[in-house]
């Protein structure tokens, strides 16, 4: 019956916009943006004041062996405060809290991944080909007032959005 309940949820196919990566000092930084990831019901949950986290995962993958050479996980959390009529977005990668009264701006912070340190250049072996893979997911939340658990992934049709960069080597990115 649980799954029957979730069949009432109209989901969207969330996806990442184009991925960009380049070295910055001793790190490999990545920029991308999650798009088409909100539905009116999902927004209603956020606007209710429920804290919602977007989990992002960055993986340096060997395309041949499919082995993950390095992995980094971060999250962005949004919460709305009714009394202040203010959104706060916390980004775990730099531990910064953004405050805004605009929901659009808050969503922008929530979905934008700007120059995230995916790994250090030392993590990338020379003469080995890699791919950078970025994915996102949501977790279940428990709404206490109605005593109900909701798997937020249903708003993304239970599909993790993913994006892969083109193949690169240590030499290419340090050129």
């Amino acid at each position: 019956m649980g799954s029957l309940f979730y069949s009432t949820i109209n989901g969207v196919n969330a996806e990442f916009d184009s991925i960009e990566f380049f070295p910055k000092s001793s790190s490999l930084t990545v920029s991308t943006k999650l798009i088409n990831c909100f539905t009116p019901e999902f927004e209603q949950i956020i606007l209710a004041g429920q804290p919602v986290r977007f989990y992002y995962s960055f993986q340096i993958v060997n395309p041949e062996s499919k082995k993950v050479a390095y992995e980094k996980n971060i999250y962005h959390q949004i919460q709305y405060f009714h009394l202040d009529k203010q959104f706060t977005v916390y980004t775990s990668e730099n531990q910064v809290v953004y405050k805004t009264e605009s929901f659009e701006r808050a969503k922008e912070h929530l979905t934008s991944l700007e120059q995230i340190d995916a790994c250090t250049l030392d993590d990338i072996k020379k003469h080995v080909e890699y791919k950078l893979k970025v994915s996102a997911h949501l977790e279940k939340i428990f709404i206490q007032s109605i005593n109900k658990e909701i798997n937020l992934m249903f708003y993304w049709n239970s599909i993790k959005p993913e994006i892969e960069s083109s193949t690169f080597t240590h030499k290419i990115i340090t050129r």
């Binding site: 009432t8 209603q44 004041g49 009714h82 109605i146």
Partner: peptide, 23 residues
């Protein structure tokens, strides 16, 4: 007060979900 606000909104959300379920 913040929790009370949240409760009201969550109940609205639950009511909408219930309506969708019912349909």
């Amino acid at each position: 007060f913040e929790n009370l606000h949240r409760n009201i909104k969550e109940r609205q959300f639950a009511a909408d979900s219930f309506r969708n379920e019912m349909e």
